[in-house]
């Protein structure tokens, strides 16, 4: 499902990703861990074309990304198949939870209002927010907002979802709400890449763990291999 080969990226003359290779099978969950500034977010943003890279290649959900810029149309196709969930949620503040989830199916997939609505209602229910369809983001807790954001990503029925530190802005109680949702998705066979500082999350959700330090892969393997010896990096 994802194949990264010899990926390198410079930013302002500085190398932020260095000769990075990894692969992820359909239904797998990769956790990316490592200290701050190691390039985790940058890797994720390269995977859905939010940022270009300088060398190597990416194959994701059947799409090919090469170094340099890409046509808008290709990026839009990739992003329909590759969802993203952000640390700061980035919900659309002027819309209700339901409207946040409905928007992309309506304007990108051109579903009818009724279809988009029933899909969105189902997804809000799936993330445990059935009672909050009409709530505005500003009135929701952080955990609730992140769950709306996950529902919003799921609404496009992506083949891969990328999470960038989905629980880092949350207190432990809210973190575990979100963790439950991610575990539920993993059990359902959703392919995911999760950048996280939370080793409990990586331990429980991941099939594969990559440790990124200063733009290089330090170690990768099963959670047991990578996580046990590592002591609280970051």
């Amino acid at each position: 499902m994802i194949e990264v080969v010899a990926l390198s990226k410079n930013r302002g003359g500085k190398r932020v990703l260095e000769d990075l290779s990894l692969s992820l099978a359909e239904g797998g969950v990769t956790a990316v861990v490592g200290p701050s500034g190691g390039g985790k977010s940058t890797l994720l943003r390269c995977l859905n074309g939010l940022e270009p890279f300088d060398a190597g290649g990416i194959l994701i959900a059947g799409h090919q990304l090469t170094p340099g810029g890409h046509p808008h149309a290709l990026l839009e196709r990739i992003r329909r198949d590759v969802g993203m969930v952000f640390q700061q949620f980035n919900l659309f503040p002027q819309m209700t939870a339901l409207e946040n989830v409905m928007l992309a199916p309506r304007v990108v997939s051109r579903l009818s209002a009724a279809e988009a609505r029933s899909r969105a209602v189902g997804l809000l229910e799936r993330v445990g927010l059935d009672g909050f369809a009409q709530a505005r983001p500003a009135t929701l807790s952080g955990g609730q907002q992140q769950r709306v954001a996950i529902a919003r990503a799921l609404a496009m029925q992506p083949r891969v979802i990328l999470f960038d530190e989905p629980t880092s802005a949350l207190d432990p109680a809210m973190s575990s709400e979100v963790l439950e949702v991610i575990l539920d998705l993993a059990r359902g066979g959703q392919t995911m890449v999760v950048v996280t500082h939370d080793h409990a999350l990586a331990q429980r959700a991941a099939t594969h763990v990559v440790e990124l330090v200063a733009g290089r892969i330090q170690r990768q393997g099963s959670p047991a291999e990578v996580l046990i010896p590592a002591v609280g990096s970051g």
Binding site: N48, R77, M84, F92, A104
Partner: peptide
């Protein structure tokens, strides 16, 4: 905030759709 742009683009929306709806 740019996060709004990135969130919309990450859903596969075009630049124009992002501007118009978000």
């Amino acid at each position: 905030p740019t996060g709004q742009f990135e969130a919309a683009m990450s859903l596969g929306m075009t630049t124009w759709q992002t501007l118009r709806h978000v």
